[in-house]
Amino acid sequence: MVSFLQIVLLALGIAKIIIFAHFILSWLINFQVLNLRQPVVAQIWYGLQRVLEPIYEPIRRFLPQMGGVDLSPLVALFAIYAVEIIIRNNLPAFV
């Protein structure tokens, strides 16, 4: 059981890295540091979009419209951190 929870923590850590990468890339694209006409940037951007859209879409349904500001990555990160805290606090019970 402990190994399974450690694998879940690893997957959550990878999810956090992917969300942070998507967040930073979106800022770089919006401030025109990077351009979606560059093939590598476009591949990375659309790949991250395909991975993260199933996570963001249910969150967006519950969040109110914020006038172009998307808070779904922040809510997703908050949820990931909450799950990590719950697992880490209950991990000694399984040892």
Results as ranks from 00 to 15, higher is better:
V51M: 12
A42V: 07
Q49A: 14
W45M: 12
R88Y: 14
Q43D: 12
R37P: 07
F94Y: 12
Q43M: 15
A82Y: 06
W45I: 07
F20P: 03
A82I: 09
R37W: 12
V83W: 02
Q32S: 12
I80T: 06
I17Q: 06
N90K: 11
Y46I: 14
D70V: 07
D70K: 01
S3Y: 08
V40E: 09
G67V: 11
L28K: 01
R61E: 05
A42K: 07
N89F: 14
P39Q: 05
N30D: 12
R37V: 15
Y56W: 00
G68Y: 08
I87D: 00
I85Y: 15
V8D: 03
P54L: 08
I85T: 13
A21Y: 10
H22C: 06
G47Y: 00
F78R: 10
Q38W: 15
F20Y: 10
I29Q: 06
P54D: 04
R61T: 09
A82L: 07
A11N: 15
V8P: 02
P73F: 07
A82C: 09
K16T: 09
I18N: 00
Q38G: 09
S26I: 03
L74F: 13
Q6D: 10
F31Q: 13
L28I: 03
E53K: 11
A11H: 07
F23H: 05
R50Q: 12
L74R: 04
F4A: 09
I17K: 06
L10H: 10
V51I: 11
H22E: 10
A42Y: 03
I29L: 13
I85G: 11
N30H: 11
L9I: 01
A82V: 10
L34F: 06
E57A: 15
F4T: 11
L34W: 02
W27T: 10
V75R: 00
L77G: 03
I29S: 04
F62L: 15
R50V: 11
A42M: 06
W27N: 14
N89D: 12
V2Q: 04
G47Q: 04
A76L: 09
G68E: 03
R61M: 09
L5C: 01
F4Y: 15
V2K: 04
E84Q: 13
I14F: 05
A93Y: 13
L9N: 06
I19P: 00
S3R: 12
L71N: 04
V41M: 02
L10C: 14
V33A: 08
L77F: 09
L36V: 04
I24D: 04
L52K: 05
L52F: 03
N90P: 14
L63A: 02
I55D: 02
N89L: 14
Y56Q: 01
E57S: 13
I18G: 01
I19E: 00
Y46E: 11
L5R: 02
F31L: 06
E84N: 04
N35Y: 10
R88N: 13
I85Q: 14
V83R: 05
V8L: 06
V33P: 01
A82E: 14
Y81N: 11
V75T: 06
I85P: 09
V83A: 09
I59T: 00
S26P: 03
V8M: 08
R37M: 14
F4V: 08
S3W: 12
L77P: 01
N89W: 15
Y81V: 13
N89A: 15
M1T: 10
Y81E: 12
L36N: 05
F23E: 07
I29E: 02
H22Q: 13
L25I: 10
I17N: 11
V75I: 07
G13L: 09
K16N: 13
L48D: 00
F94H: 14
Q65S: 15
